[in-house]
Design a protein around this nucleic acid. Sequence first.
DNA 1: ACAGCTTGTATTACTCGGACAAAATGAAAT
DNA 2: ATTTCATTTTGTCCGAGTAATACAAGCTGT
Lengths: 243, 243
Amino acid sequence: MRGRSDAPQGEKPAPAKERIHTAIARQLGVLIVSGAYKPGDLLDNEIASSEQLQVSRSAYREAMRILAAKGLVESRPKTGTRVSPQSHWRLLDPEVLAWLFESQPSLEFLKGLFELRMIVEPEAAALAASRRTSDDVSRMRRALQDMERNTVATDEGRAADREFHDAVLDATRNPVVISLASGIGAAVRWTTIYKQRDRSLPRDPMPEHWKVFDAIAMGSPDEARIAMQALVAQAQEDTRLSL
Amino acid sequence: MRGRSDAPQGEKPAPAKERIHTAIARQLGVLIVSGAYKPGDLLDNEIASSEQLQVSRSAYREAMRILAAKGLVESRPKTGTRVSPQSHWRLLDPEVLAWLFESQPSLEFLKGLFELRMIVEPEAAALAASRRTSDDVSRMRRALQDMERNTVATDEGRAADREFHDAVLDATRNPVVISLASGIGAAVRWTTIYKQRDRSLPRDPMPEHWKVFDAIAMGSPDEARIAMQALVAQAQEDTRLSL
DNA sequence: ACAGCTTGTATTACTCGGACAAAATGAAAT
DNA sequence: ATTTCATTTTGTCCGAGTAATACAAGCTGT
């Protein structure tokens, strides 16, 4: 190790062009989670695959390490690289989630995703209500105001939406719950876009959001839980309608 | 792609020796999650690091891809590779979890882990109670019988314990919840070992397990939820006492 | 003199190609 | 049935060159 940053806290300055290993991982990742490659399927060997994809073996191997780290494939000498059973996939990993949404995800999966949000987020809101600091409250208020000003029809509005959900999870002060934020955030992002697709923007999501905010700000776990249940239920319903 | 396996369903034949990239990822992963390397810290460049670790640059780079895939580090040209903020870590990834438990995890983290189990598993049990098939029930019964026969003092008993929890999550028929099984299973494994460490094995966990089983077998979601709450609470309490 | 833009330079990860080693399967020989 | 051996595949290593980017220096217009 060489250095230690002194709390840079700055913004991420650059979008950064996609690297080859990332691109290969994404391409194959999409093929796997979309079902084009099925669990148990054997991939071509490294030489053949890297030639087909027009990349070096090193880049292809790094892509394999990424997919393996996310539980999508498993490699062994002589046997080759096989697609792992779905139960091994890290479905809440933000990148896996992004790959899933890159090709219409199955209804079964969408249902499952909302079912988990319905389990986790209300309890998270309840925890947040009992542990939030005034900083948390300010952050949530700011997020909702941004969301209100821009509406969820804009990128800024959707970012504010995610920021609100992140702030709630952060306020739980539970590192494990917080680590789910990136996954849940991705889910929020994609399903919001879905809802937006068919023009008839459904209901105004702001009232439900403010109810959650009020309950958390007031420090009422039970009310926060109920309000968040209503919020997720509405999102679920709107997403269901747009399909 | 080349072939498609015909449902091999066989056991995993080999333990497989740890590869170098895996070993490096684990070593650095442990250093990161244990706090030896802190978020924002800059790692040495690839050349220096791979030389210090006595491995090739390729192997080191593949290790970096693994760590990056799990959200532990982020690499960019010119800037180098830095440890990511904790909120980016995939804390429920089974490997990350294993790395955490390789060096005494913080109390804060253990609390968070049980808090999440307390949120997810009772609801999962409730879902399982309303969706389980007779096959699920048989599987759970077999697991509990194995657990009873071997006790949690043995590896076989602990494996049966995990098998039971897996069976419950599988019975939810929710792919996202099921994908949490490997993480929760790892948590069950490690905390069970923890409890075992101090000789005085605390309470007999079987009665609570059978209550969960009965409720699920009977198809009573509410009872299953409550029984699972009690089960996790007991595990939490026993773990707390042994620390 | 100064703010803003452009250019240059050095550092770093990224990509490539080729070679050999090690693991594991399945067949052959005992 | 057991052991031996050959083959396939991933694993590991090395060395070279490319591309992205932070930072400093220079330029430009006011």
